[in-house]
């Protein structure tokens, strides 16, 4: 039976110390990969302790931008080539230089949209909130959520308490 346990900390250094403790295997059966940190602010240094965790947003950005580039180039040239009654002004039908301007804009437009979609997907947004989400996390407290087996819950609670946890909450995972 797996469980998620949330500990709320007001002191950020203590929270970091908990993560460090788990990293040093102070709780049996729990590794750093089981930890989720909930924080009111962005903590690049905590993420360092959590180790490499990937984010796919740059891939989304790159593919969106590439799509914009290729689609833009082809779309504009094709539209011009099939619309011959165009104002010429002595200029060729397919004007590469002026199309470059629009391709540039389309690259950014699709890049931005794709980044945003990647963000919504990658950040696991639009899910129902649970008991482990607390308003205080958005105020000034750090929450550490750890996924543990039932038997390892107590050592974890002890670790939390050692580092002056304010509140501990459990939530059973439905299998």
């Amino acid at each position: 039976m797996k469980k998620r346990i949330l500990g709320l900390f007001s002191d950020f250094d203590q929270a970091i110390a908990v993560v460090v403790g788990i990293r040093q295997y102070e709780v049996p059966g729990v590794t750093v990969d089981d930890i989720t940190i909930k924080s009111p602010i962005e903590h690049p240094e905590i993420e360092e302790i959590l180790g490499e965790r990937s984010s796919h947003v740059p891939k989304f950005a790159l593919s969106g931008a590439l799509f914009g580039l290729i689609f833009g180039a082809f779309f504009l040239a094709a539209a011009q080539a099939n619309f011959l009654v165009q104002p010429q002004g002595g200029k060729p039908v397919i004007t590469i230089t002026s199309n470059l301007v629009l391709i540039y804009e389309m690259l950014i437009l699709f890049g931005v949209l794709s980044t945003f979609i990647g963000f919504l997907i990658g950040g696991r947004f639009m899910r129902k909130r649970t008991a482990l989400d607390d308003e205080k996390i958005n105020l000034d407290q750090v929450g550490i959520v750890v996924e543990v087996e039932e038997g390892n819950a107590d050592p974890l609670r002890d670790l939390f308490r050692k580092h002056k946890v304010l509140e501990i909450r459990d939530r059973e995972l439905e299998e």
Partner: peptide
Amino acid sequence: AATCEPVCPVAAAYH
């Protein structure tokens, strides 16, 4: 090489 033609946004001026 009319200057009015290429600037028309909707291709209303053409040759």
